[in-house]
Every structure is written in structure tokens, then in C-alpha cells.
Design a protein around this nucleic acid. Sequence first.
DNA 1: TTGCCACGATCGCAAGCCGCGATGATAAAG
DNA 2: CTTTATCATCGCGGCTTGCGATCGTGGCAA
Lengths: 294, 294
Amino acid sequence: MELRWLQSFVAVAEELHFSRAARRLHLAQPALTAQIKQLESTVGAPLFTRTNRMGGLTPAGVALLPEARAILARTSTLKQTVGRAADGQAGELRLGIIPPAALDFVAESVREFTLRFPGLDVSVRQDSQARLVAALQEGELDLVLGRDPSGALPRASLGHRRLLAEEQGILLRADHPLAAGPTVALAKLEGATLLLLRGNAYFGGNLRRFAASRGITLKLTPTAEDFPSLHWMVRAGLGIAPCSLLLAATLGPGLVAKRLRPSPPRLGIHLIWRGSAPPPAGARWLKLLRPTAA
Amino acid sequence: MELRWLQSFVAVAEELHFSRAARRLHLAQPALTAQIKQLESTVGAPLFTRTNRMGGLTPAGVALLPEARAILARTSTLKQTVGRAADGQAGELRLGIIPPAALDFVAESVREFTLRFPGLDVSVRQDSQARLVAALQEGELDLVLGRDPSGALPRASLGHRRLLAEEQGILLRADHPLAAGPTVALAKLEGATLLLLRGNAYFGGNLRRFAASRGITLKLTPTAEDFPSLHWMVRAGLGIAPCSLLLAATLGPGLVAKRLRPSPPRLGIHLIWRGSAPPPAGARWLKLLRPTAA
DNA sequence: TTGCCACGATCGCAAGCCGCGATGATAAAG
DNA sequence: CTTTATCATCGCGGCTTGCGATCGTGGCAA
């Protein structure tokens, strides 16, 4: 079966005239006759009633005509469909986000993205850095917002780029003694107990190392399972916690986030993808995300 | 675009391995590589991520795969679809029936036919012989049950075959004097007025010519528009009418149909079609109709 | 009735495409 | 570092396809 045969058949069926159809197809009449003959022998039934003059469609031809039109239509739109998928205007975008990167402006840009490209199915998975990177390498995700993965790239080649850098601060009850000034001196935290989100050792480790380099020892206790729990614990006065200053604007009442003096090194939030470049749909989303992130 | 490219693409996408896919396609690997390359240049986007080792599908490839499968599936069923239409097991059958041929056993066989072949759309049109034959020649009908068309074949070549022959008799009120005996002598009709269905000159003409050849003059007055009206008029005692003895079994109470003595020549009910043979769907229907008609 | 015309079928030839085997290039595996 | 596995490239032979020319035939008009 050849698509060319179907095109020729449709042309002849519409013109009911071999020579005219051949002209329309930019073909000579003998070639067209040969094609129709091949098609007829393939489907095993004559398609036109003709002696040496065109008659009309046989029942087989009547049945074939809509089928052929459907196949040809689908084939002709195929190029556009695939092209849009290649441009990232359609298809699927499976995002992985680690909890600290699940920021409001990320959610907002995803929302805008789905509105702008209805042909795109966006799914988001929130998990730990390690599991997200593993899923990315398995091909289960297309793009991950996570920590710098350059430390450990187990197998497949991942690309990454820093999207933004977050500054670590301290989350306190509003009436906490340390919340008095505009900043919190790192030295004041000597010996203090800091509540940490479970599975967030990367975040806590950065702060601990920075403090240790200045001769200050921090006690970090991973306790909370999620952000709301951590915030509740701090609001309840059970302790204070390191936090990202990016989240300062979204804190509920009774909580404040203060900068540290001196500032620990900023932690990057990275875009991570498989292969040499982000997938096209991911690249389109980044165009929306970038202005907000800057 | 070539269907072969899509087949090759699906094979490679399923195997994720050029050499294996080539073996499955009974093809050498270079030919397969060339086909994929052609497909990629046609759709304008790479379909596989590969350097010299197979990686996986690109977003374009992911989008193409279900499309290609759909097109190929539709193409592979095409032969069956067309084959069934050519065998008359699917498609359309547009019947034309003149009123005298609209017999019960015809309706019954049509019903059985639609039950046996659900893929077939049967439509029936009841009209005058002339209009049905015209519609048949215009390609608006596939098969007509009507009178012998050999007398006047205006343009297109029609085929026909006698399906059955009906004997003309006389329709009477049950208490009519002529209804006493088992038959009605033709001579008794001399000078009588016979009611005739309008547009049924063919039917009446046969009887009139037969009587005339025996020196008997009949007065035929076309009055009734349809069979129920004709029957009502006879039952009301407004006259008597020639009728087909095939209808004798379906007469309501108060009416009888009597044979004529001597019998006029039988009138055939013919199957008429366009071209050299009945359309396949029509032939299938005839196989059901024939045993009943015999 | 007869010639003409329109149209589809057939034929022979040239060109382009397709597929094969051989070979090259390169990354993973040992 | 060598080997192996895998995809890309190359050159050639064969087949298919399309073209022009020609034929056969049914319809149409004079």
C-alpha cells in the first residue's frame, strides 16, 4: 500500500476523469492508470466501473473513498503535530521539584504555561533530590528543579544550569529575642538547636559547614516532615529553623525570617535535564520562568 | 511521506535498536538508517536521541509514535474494509420499489438482510417506475424492483432479470355477484368499469390489451391514489378493480380476489440494476429473496 | 451510416530511488 | 588499551516509476 495510490485514487474519484486527475496530480495519464491498477490489485477489487470510458465508483470504491481521505488527512497533519511537539508547543512536560524550590512564582509560571499552550500536558512531581535525579535518568521526568547535581552524576549525562540562588536565613517567632534587630548574628546561634526539614541535609549542611568554618557549632535536628509542620513548630515556640529568604514573603502571621550576619554562601536552585539541552517544552517554560526569577 | 518510513519508525521506536529493528523488518541496517533519516528530514525534527548509540525518543518522536501507529492501523484494516464492501457485506444498498412490488415477503427479506449484515445501510424508496429508473441511471439507486425495463432504455445500460410473475385477477366486494364462482369469466366484464391505481397504466394496459384481443372492451378509470384508497373504494361498492393475485392473501375482510378466465399474460416483476451485474450488496440480498420468491 | 473525437489502456525506454554489502567512526565494556 | 557493539557512510546493481507515443473503442455529429 502506498499513500501515493490513495492520493491518486481520491483525485480520480473526485474528477471522475483520468486525464483531468492526472493534470491535477502533475502526472501523465498512463502513470495514473498504472497506480489505480496497482491499488485495485492490492485491495483485491475494482474501484471504478469503466470499460474505456469512466463510469463511476464501484461499491468498493465508495467504501474506500472516505477511508483514503481520512488516512491522507491524518498524514498531512502529522508534520504539524510533530513539528509542534518538537517546538515544545505540544506534548508532555514532566517536572520534578524539590520542596525548597516549590516556590509561588514557579507555580504561577506553570499555571501561565498551561494556559498559553493547551496542547501541553504538564505534570509535577515533588520528591527528594536523589529520587528526582534518578527518575530523570530513567526517562520518567523531563526537567528537574533541584540542587546542583554536578557533585554526583552517576550514569547518564545530565545538563544543568543555575536558575537562582537562595540566601539562607533564620525563621523565628515574631516575639523571639533574636527577632529584634534587622539581622541575626551567626555567633548568637552557638549552641542553639535548629529545627530542620527531614531529608533536607543539603540545606542544613551548607549552614553547618559555614558556621563551623567560623568556629561556631550548630545543632541541627531533622524533625519536621513538611514545611507547614516546620512552620507550626516554630510558631509554637518549639525552636528556630534555618530557612530560605525566598520564602520570607509567604510566611504566615507570627513568623519572621531574618538574614544572617555574616551571610552563608548562597545555595543555587538548578535546572537539570537529560542530554545536551532542555527538552523543547521545558525550554518554552523557562522563557516564562526566567523574567520572574531574575 | 511514505508508509514504509512510518513502519520502520515504529519498529525502531519499539526495539530502540537499529539492527534488531532491521531484522524484524527483513531489511539491512543501512537501509533502515536511511529511511529514518528521510522521515526525520520530512517532519523537520530528529526523532531519536542518538550519537552513534541509540538513546531514546525525542519529544517529536514521542508525539509521532501514536500518530504513526494510528495511520498504519487504519491502512492495514483498509483492505478488509474495502473487501467487505466489494463482497456486499458492508456499505450501502439503496432500493427502489414500485408499489405493486412492495410485497410482504420483500419487506421480510429486507428485514432479515439488515439483521444478517449490520454493516450495511439499506434504504428503500417507493416511487413510479419511470422515476425509479431515472434515479437508478443517475446513480441515486443501486437496485430497483419494477417492471420490465427492456421496452425503453433511454441512456445508460441497465441490466434486468425477472424475479417473479404476477397473475392479474379481479378485486371484488365479497358479496359481489361475480364473486360467487371460483373464477370470473373475462366476458362478464364487457362494458364494466374497472377502478385503476393512478400511474399504473402498465398494469391496466396489459389487461386491456388482452381483453381487446378477445373482442372485449374494458373501461379503466384511474382514480385511486394509493392501494388503501383503492381497496376502500372497492369495499364501498364504488366498483371493481384489477389486482395482482399475489396480494390476495393480504386483503382485508370484505374483499376477495378472483382469477380471470382465461388468464391474461402474467406480468413480470423485474430486478433492474446499473451496469453488467447487480451490485454485490444487492446480490447478497437476492440470495435471501430468491428462495421466498420461488 | 460513417468518420471523427475523446479517453483510457498498453508499450518501450530512461531516470531515479531503494536496498545490499563493505567499510568507517566512536563510545561502552572488559 | 583492546575489543566489541552499534550506527553512519559509500558505491553499485536492480527494480520501480514516470514519460512520450501509440492503440482500441465507444460516443457523437454530420
